[in-house]
């Protein structure tokens, strides 16, 4: 399998060492309260992996996700993304990384309102400096491959949850990033749609070698991943290969229909 070879040959895509994150809060009497969310996290993710990060709310999984996605900065420790020290980067450099190297998929879809699906998918290209007509052309091509072509001119509120999430995934894929970060991508979807979305992720991981990091608190969603990381109170307590994923892989045959050539 292509993805397995990538794991062995390439440098780590994500390398986190001794990463801590704490927030300073203002107490009722004006004193500063430091709330530490992540404690000395060490984590290495290789290209082509499919990782599920699990944990209860307050475990720090969302904070870790935000740091992985360069949306937030660590308090201490180092974070290397594709060989680059992200912790030392300026705001504009981080914006460039988010644009080029990371695709985000959110629980609430986070599509831009009152904008067509096509324009939503095309927007990352605009921020990459590509002209509008060229961007739209590429976005339409991608929507065609994900079977959403007929919804290209629909606005998000005219689409079902599953359709919105597939538009969001298309938007995440448009700049062909090596990494997709999905924060509870199925949290707002019914079981059947959740399954379709997960199979789509699985397929992207398997066929295109895209590294996927998924945050979820649902066990059955986590089974699609090949590696399972469990966080508790800001510490990694479990980091293991996911035996259950083999079954998921066997189900993947159904997912072929989701991406048509």
């Amino acid at each position: 399998m292509a993805s397995m070879q990538a794991v062995h040959n390439a440098n780590p895509l994500i390398q986190i060492e001794d990463l801590c994150k704490s927030y300073n809060l203002q107490g009722a009497n004006g004193e500063t309260i430091t709330n530490q969310v992540l404690f000395s996290i060490n984590l290495t993710i290789n290209p082509g992996e499919f990782v599920a990060i699990m944990g209860h709310s307050g475990s720090g999984k969302s904070t870790l996700m935000n740091i992985l996605g360069c949306l937030d900065t660590p308090t201490s420790g180092s974070y290397w993304l594709a060989g680059k020290n992200v912790a030392a980067m300026s705001g504009d450099e981080l914006a460039h990384i988010r644009n080029q190297s990371i695709g985000f998929v959110f629980q609430g879809f986070n599509l831009l309102k009152r904008m067509t699906a096509l324009d939503n998918v095309a927007t990352p290209l605009l921020y990459a400096g590509i002209g509008r007509s060229q961007s739209r052309k590429r976005a339409l091509e991608l929507l065609r491959r994900t079977g959403l072509e007929s919804f290209a001119m629909h606005q998000p509120n005219q689409l079902s949850g599953g359709q919105q999430q597939r538009v969001a995934i298309s938007r995440a894929l448009i700049n062909e990033p090596p990494l997709i970060l999905a924060d509870e991508p199925t949290g707002n979807l019914d079981t059947q749609t959740s399954r379709e979305i997960m199979l789509l992720f699985e397929q992207l991981n398997r066929d295109q070698g895209i590294t996927i990091v998924l945050v979820t608190h649902e066990d059955d969603i986590a089974t699609y991943a090949k590696r399972l990381i469990r966080l508790k109170d800001g510490h990694i307590i479990v980091d293991k290969r996911n035996e259950a994923s083999e079954t998921a892989l066997n189900q993947a045959a159904d997912g072929n229909s989701l991406i048509t050539q």
Partner: peptide, 16 residues
Amino acid sequence: TREIGIRMAIGANQRA
């Protein structure tokens, strides 16, 4: 604010 956040997540820098 949320729109700004989304735009930043998909690659808008401060200048944009």
